[in-house]
Each structure stands twice: as structure tokens, then as C-alpha cells.
Simulated assay, not measured.
Amino acid sequence: MEPAELRRAVAAGRATAAEMGFQVDDAVVIHNSDRVALRLVPCDVLVRVAPPGHLTDSEFEVEVARRLADVGAPVAELDPRVEPRVYVRDDFAVSLWTYYAPVGPEITPAAYADVLERHHAALRQVDLDAPHFTDRVAAALREVTDRERSPELSDSDRSFLSDTLGGLSSTISGDKAGDQLLHGEAHPGNLLNTKRGPLLVDLATCCRGPIEWDLAHAPEEVGEHYAGADHDLIRRCRALNWAMFSAWRWRQDDHMPDRGHWRVEGLHRVRAALDRCGA
């Protein structure tokens, strides 16, 4: 979020928690992107604040968290001291979560794979109406094909990303028999090492697809420890994921730090990933 919007988001998060009876002396910004994560002290509540227009996404995330907590999934949980719901303040969508202090050591590939296996097993016990991962690919493709949305993308790179997004998406989604609910973006930034063990966060990305889509977001060594994983499919999913990442960087309204670097690096990583899977 931009500084002005961030200040309003922090104020909305603090006011919501205070209204729930929590003592809020300070708010520490833990993460700031399309939504903000705040640690409130001394009450030790993690508050997630989504900008106007994202109420439905926040409500979906809360519902996913509630359902997964019921089946013992290795995920961050909502704060048990308040009603599990989304609060609206100043048009921001605010949800209150348990704060988990990070601990060491670094999560090993084997432990990472174990978390994903247990998470996928829990998701198979949950009935949720979630989008297919290809819906997000289609959204990325729209950014690439619309010159007004990505005016600085060259014709050759536009064609390259368009062909990659469309071609890999069709190939990967051709057989949906093995699809199931997924985390959606199970990258290292969404896996916390806590006193309870590794826990997945950012559940709003829940979608349907092959388990290899989640594995493609994890470090490459993780797939080696996941029983029954299709390593060729992981490589194709990884190439598609990098193509999506690259597409977002070329949006005119993208605000990722060091965007110029990641525009170039993203395209490089797409090509490298395609080479690895023989495409």
C-alpha cells in the first residue's frame, strides 16, 4: 500500500482491535503488499487489513481458516478471543489472527514436504467452492494481452508471455481428475516456523488444481520428499508460475519494490524454467 493508504489501514486495524477490547499501544507492520499484516502490542494480535473492494476475498480467507482449523490442518488460526469473522472499518476489511513468533532453525525440505502433505490431506476433508488455479492464469494473461494495462511490455516479450501462459495452462489443466483444494501460493514466505511447528499462512490464495502447483512454489528440493509427486509436472507448473509473476510485474499499476529489476529477471526465470522442462 502507498504511505497514505497504509496509515489509514493501520488506523483501521488498531481501532478494530481496540473495539474488541484488546489493549493496543503500538502496531508493527510485518508485511505490506496488496494487504497489510500488523502485530499489535501488548495484546499480541495479528491483524490483516485488506483495502476497499477486497471484502469477499477476506471473508473467503476467514472461512478457509475456520474450516481447516476444524480438521487440524497445519495453518495459522484466527484469534480465538473474538468472533471468527471479517470486520469493516473505513472501507477496509479487517480480520484478527493468532500471532506466532518465528523460531529457528530453518525449515528443512523434508519438513516442508511433510507440512504440504498434511495440509493437502486436511484440504481433502474440506468442501469449499474455490476457483481453479487457471482462473488466476487467465487474469495474468489479460494483463499481458491488454496493451493499456501493460504498455511498456515489448511486442516480442508480450507474445512470449502470452504463448507461455496460454500453452502451459492448457497443458497442465488438461486432466483435472487429480485436482483438489490447494494452498495456492505455498512459497517460503507463507510458511512460518513456530513453537507449534511449521504453519502455512495467507489462506486467501486457496484454489483447486494438482498438488504439483503448490510444490512448484516451494524450493526445488521439497518435491523430492513429497510422496508420489510428478516431477515433470512440477517443472511445468514452476515455469507457469514464473510467467504469472512476470506478467504482474509489467502491469502499469504494479508497485513491487525494485520492479525494474524483477521485470527483467522474471522473464529470464521464465525462459530458464522452460529450458528445464524441455518446452
Rank of each mutant, 00 (worst) to 15 (best):
G21Q: 07
R158C: 06
C237H: 08
P84S: 09
F133C: 02
P51E: 10
V270F: 00
M256C: 01
E59T: 07
Y100W: 05
C277W: 05
H225E: 04
R48D: 02
F22D: 11
R149Q: 14
P257K: 08
H225C: 09
P42E: 09
A18H: 05
V137N: 03
A229F: 04
A76T: 14
V47Q: 06
L165H: 14
N193T: 06
W97T: 08
D202I: 11
R276Q: 14
V222G: 01
Y100H: 13
D79H: 13
R238D: 00
V29F: 02
L192P: 05
R118F: 04
A138H: 01
T205G: 05
E224I: 02
M1V: 13
L191G: 04
L215E: 00
V126R: 06
V94M: 00
S150N: 12
R81T: 11
T171W: 14
C237K: 05
R149F: 01
A272W: 07
L182R: 10
S169R: 11
A279N: 10
L267P: 03
E185T: 12
A186E: 00
D179P: 04
R236N: 01
C277P: 12
P131T: 07
E152V: 13
A122L: 03
T171K: 15
D34S: 13
L200M: 14
D202K: 07
V82D: 06
A17Y: 05
V62S: 06
C207G: 06
H120K: 04
L78R: 03
D57I: 07
R235I: 00
V41S: 15
P151V: 13
I211M: 05
V103F: 00
D155Q: 10
I107N: 00
V75K: 02
E220M: 08
Q252R: 15
V75W: 01
T108Y: 00
V86Y: 05
W97H: 09
C43T: 15
V115Y: 00
G184Q: 08
M244I: 13
A93L: 01
E221F: 03
Q125D: 11
V201Y: 02
A204F: 02
H268N: 14
I30W: 04
D26R: 15
R48Q: 14
A76V: 15
W213Q: 01
C206W: 01
D129F: 02
P3F: 03
V126D: 02
R67H: 11
S154R: 12
W242D: 06
V222D: 00
I107C: 01
P210Y: 03
